[in-house]
Design a protein around this nucleic acid. Structure first.
Lengths: 230, 230
DNA sequence: GGATGCGGGATCGTATACAATCCTGTCCGC
DNA sequence: GCGGACAGGATTGTATACGATCCCGCATCC
């Protein structure tokens, strides 16, 4: 009942957003094929708009477009995974510092809401939604820093991080996340830029350390393991 | 002879690249309208591929898509201009440091070529091409640092910087550019990461200081000045 | 028996056609 | 003379149609 095949709603961005959300919440696994006709029928739109949406997602590295093959949910390599988090390490700590200087009570309230919703999603057994909200927390900080350009980059990096987590997640330490976010919020509330910067840096390092980035290939996870011992 | 209206060459990315190059070299001014039929006829392709190319460029903030209005070459606001250079300030110095650690003789030779080509273009009275090569220098450094993700961001930021320069350029100090790049190359050749980082930081600050970012509107430059005294 | 060539089916890439929207110039009323 | 409504033209948004390419399965040949 919640998801009816809408006859036609608005534009291609809606389709892109819906697809991105599904990918972000791990409802569509990495490597999954996104058939144009199928997606078009689901959303009640033509292939034209689906193609536009897929190209949009491809530009954000959420899907991979292979010529005459179709669109697939991206499977970041370990190299890409490292690059994504190195980029985040360059962008986010300094942005968090700026956010600490500019955060208004309204901003802090919104962040608090995010954290609460994240907890609620976890309690409700919806880790995908919790992960999504966790990412929105980072994006919101960039927005508070009043840097829409950087916020755009972080949005992209968070989206890719979601795929990376889907592929390379190892430790089951969900508590770390929420606690780190809470500490970060406190630093922002205190307008302690230096602390916010350090906390963000550490938080990102924790995230990377919770991944298993030893393998060489992402599809090795489904291929090499299959023929590990011949 | 060099630029014939190709009957049909390859794909939409070619059109996007050609358009991006023209914008980058200031052959198409900010605010210019990009008619789909017109562009399609120029490149000998259909509107479908032109639309794809324009959406690609829109995603990189090189063109602005207005619903039912068409595509226009972007006109970054002063706010966007500041944001772009703040993002570059976050990304490029640290990337230059990494590049200094990894630069091979082959990399250095390629950078030397870039600088030489930049000088040649300036001498040939083609400042647009010189600016393009100057941007490629920055992108090449990110590539040397072996960070394709960051390189992608910098590519986007350099492209937007080209538009910003077209709109807000003030001082005519082209020497600064080439000299800064030469000093940077020397630091990279010496594998002096710290110096490369500092030089890049200073270079970006010089770039910003060569702009006139006082105005509030970008189109004021072409509209208000026209009817300054009625 | 295994590898190679080939054909059917499906899917993507591009072009074209139609509908919706917007801009511009003109006409009418005040 | 001037402001507003309206129609014409142009341009974009979306859908559909056709051609090209690729994958998969089967038959054939070595």
């Amino acid at each position: 009942m919640t998801d009816r095949p809408h006859p036609l709603e608005g534009s291609s961005e809606t389709v892109a957003d819906r697809l991105a959300l599904a990918i972000h919440e791990h409802r569509i696994p990495p490597g999954a094929k996104l058939n144009e006709d199928e997606v078009g029928e689901i959303f009640g739109v033509s292939r034209t708009v689906v193609r536009t949406a897929l190209q949009h997602l491809a530009h954000d590295h959420l899907v991979t477009l292979r010529r005459n093959r179709g669109a697939f949910v991206a499977q970041p390599t370990v190299r890409e995974a490292r690059e994504v988090f190195e980029a985040r390490a360059l962008l986010e700590p300094r942005t968090a510092r700026s956010a600490a200087d500019r955060a208004t009570p309204d901003d802090l309230a919104r962040l608090e809401t995010h954290i609460a919703a994240e907890h609620a999603a976890l309690a409700a057994g919806d880790p995908g939604r919790a992960l999504r909200l966790s990412g929105l927390f980072h994006i919101e900080i960039a927005r508070i820093a009043d840097q829409t350009t950087i916020a755009g980059f972080i949005t992209q990096l968070v989206a890719r991080s979601s795929l990376i987590i889907a592929l390379y997640w190892h430790r089951r330490n969900a508590l770390c996340e929420s606690h780190a976010h809470h500490a970060l919020l406190k630093a922002l509330a205190d307008h302690d830029g230096k602390r916010a910067e350090d906390l963000m840096k550490g938080h990102l390092l924790d995230l990377v350390s919770s991944l298993d980035l030893r393998n060489t290939e992402p599809l090795a996870r489904s291929l090499k393991e299959a023929l590990a011992r011949p």
